[in-house]
Design a protein around this nucleic acid. Sequence first.
DNA 1: AGTGCGGCCTGTCCGC
DNA 2: TGCGGACAGGCCGCAC
Length: 271
Amino acid sequence: MPELPEVETICRGLEPLVRGRTIRAVVVREPRLRWPIPDNLAEFLEGRTIESVGRRGKYLLAHLSTGTLLIHLGMSGRLQALARNIAPSKHDHVDIFLSSGLLLRFHDPRRFGCLLPLYAEDPIHPLLARLGPEPFDLAFSGEYLYSRSRSRKTPVKAFLMDGGIVAGVGNIYASEALYGAGLHPATKAGRIGRVRYRRLVRAVQQTLLRAIDLGGSTLRDFTGARGEAGYFQQVFTVYGRNGKPCYRCGSLIQRQSIAQRSSFFCPTCQR
DNA sequence: AGTGCGGCCTGTCCGC
DNA sequence: TGCGGACAGGCCGCAC
């Protein structure tokens, strides 16, 4: 599933392809996404120029002069950049045709993704308004996590995955970062001190940065043969490694459901 | 206010 | 071989 590093990679790959291009036409074949695509999406986009592409958490943001197109890939969403208009296949829900001839195609079998118009004159969209700081923002600090977590009984993994605390840390990277910080995912957030939160912030940033670097090399050619972006294979240290030895100590990685999410951790290295 | 859980969706994998 | 069921996941919104 596209996690923050994938979205960042897509953002970087997309930017040079679409910056300064005008949207010529939009075709919506299936509006029933996580949030339905409003009827006026085409009207909102057509004739507008894409000024830049950004990211907020896992939200991809295409900035126009009159507003912003917000895209979330959910868990099965992909964006294709096609040089020519080939026949759409199953789950190809939206086509965006650019003045350059490029076609951006949104594909999402599970339809957990979304495409929403954000009008410049509207107040900040609720989906973005509630988001906490970016993982690479200075505001995301050990002190910040410490102060936000006081009296919180929720497991630190759920705390870390709360978009209102920090934006864009999903199930996979929460497991990975907690391993990096030597923190047991079930530890109550309110019982973790400043030192360990400082360590966690570093681990989150390190884990994400490494994945972004890796993604940059894996997906360097956004418009390659298949012109597809959305996933890249990433080597994980604990995620999905249930029953396999910890790379650090050899103990067997355990899988446990924490806050209704499968979590992977090393019982020896994480306390 | 904080916490837990249901709902949205389909592809894949498992056991029978 | 076919079929049902569990599972995966982000994120909202509801109920306690």
